[in-house]
Design a protein around this nucleic acid. Structure first.
Lengths: 248, 248
DNA sequence: AGAACTTTAATTGTAAGACAAATGAAAATT
DNA sequence: AATTTTCATTTGTCTTACAATTAAAGTTCT
């Protein structure tokens, strides 16, 4: 075990628990602590860093919040370096992205542009590699979006599911992970929109175009479909926001 | 203030501090706690949730680790809902992405493909909008990459800086944030590569092509340049890994 | 009255000790 | 040999206490 105190700038001494967490985090990121390796017990860490156990525990909880470690009780328990799974990474990515958008007055246009730019990056790969399951998921969501009784919120959720299937079709987990934030974080913004029956019809038509392009492995058409959908979404948002708040 | 215990599935009762952290996190994400709002004091939270103060503190440290709150000591101190800045979001994104790649046996090819796909999504926007500062940064890094005394690690760092300038040129902070993880997390993988003088020359030439395309606002050429660079990088990585570990 | 200083109260940061709960391993028993 | 019991280890939680910090209220001096 090699965990040394962070020897960085003395600037302003942060909390002890933050310092200890940083030291252990560095050890993990630099490979000095490997996956599934057991950290010393809380008592040992407390002695090593010359702090009390509650302080060590606060540090460990910080790391647990980032899924860097997991803890287990019992005789052979302890804190273990956690293999960060794609699932956990998704969740964190989505939390961070959602809050970033909701707290920073990011315009709908900016977020929307980013999302569709990223999706267009996936489209060619997805068109080339999509499996039957991804196509089926896309078709299923399109059907669902046609149900008239669907609330706006459920329509948005289905929209997200459609786009996630599109992204996952690229068969690149890193890409799926990166896009998860961009797609999911848009949902709260999309939920501010009221989808009229007419706009739903247009969106469903565009979704169908995109799904068909993916099915036909037509990369160009898939990208063009996404561009058309982006334009439609942006126009819809503009009209909704203009109607709702004519004070801006 | 409205913070109610998470009423989710009873599955397996997690730690109290995790439950409390989740309850407060939900309150923040659902807007029941707004930016800069002060949370109740630790003592009040302890009473509200019927737990001890150390347990509350562990919960708060979890939230602090995600930059959801910040704390301040003193008479008017306390825990405040933190406005998640792009800086903080970058940092978390990079930490998560880096660990995800290093811990999950993601192949260089997969990570590289994702990175360049995402960068190609930025290229058209960057070509359209890049400012003089972004172009200058790109040229500066290209010059730096030509210095013969540069270590491989410094060459990689400059490469990252070049690509970040390219991404930032798109003028979309959301896009920059999303790409930060993809670009930076590749650096440890790139550092495993030895860059011969010949390969450096080729990379610099491709960087120059890309910078020129961006300068000329030629979207197509910028994308093609990135594709060429991706091919070059992938080929380089293949040759390096094949030479180094012929056991796989 | 006003400015500088002091006190005070509130709040987070840290420490120490204790007990509960979980858990696997060792020991005892059948 | 198999099963049960005991036990030691470790995390989870509580209690109490004190230190450090900070802004506001109060006090004193000019």
């Amino acid at each position: 075990m090699k965990i040394e105190p962070a020897s960085s700038g003395p600037a302003r001494p942060a909390d002890l628990s933050a310092q200890i967490a940083a030291a252990i985090r560095d050890a993990i990121m630099e490979g000095r602590l490997i996956v599934d390796e057991r950290l010393p017990s809380e008592a040992e860490l407390a002695e090593h860093f010359a702090v009390s156990r509650p302080t060590v525990r606060e540090a460990l909880k910080r790391l647990a919040a980032q899924s860097l470690i997991r803890t287990q009780r019992g005789a052979t328990g302890g804190a273990f370096v956690n293999r960060l799974s794609f699932e956990e990474a998704y969740a964190q990515q989505i939390t961070t992205s959602t809050l970033l958008l909701s707290m920073n007055a990011v315009s709908f246009a900016t977020a929307c542009e980013a999302r569709y730019a990223l999706e267009r990056a996936c489209a060619p790969l997805s068109a080339a590699r999509r499996g039957a399951d991804h196509l089926a998921a896309m078709r299923r969501e399109i059907n669902r979006q046609g149900e008239p009784a669907l609330t706006d919120e459920a329509f948005c959720a289905s929209d997200v599911a459609f786009h996630r299937a599109l992204v996952d079709g690229a068969g690149n987990p890193v890409l799926s992970y990166q896009l998860a934030g961009a797609v999911e974080a848009m949902q709260p913004l999309m939920n501010m929109i009221t989808f009229s029956a007419r706009s739903r019809t247009r969106i469903i038509a565009l979704h169908t175009d995109i799904a068909n392009a993916i099915a036909a492995q037509d990369q160009r058409a898939a990208c063009d479909g996404l561009t058309a959908l982006e334009d439609e979404t942006q126009a819809l948002a503009r009209s909704v926001f203009a109607t709702r708040s004519p004070r801006a």
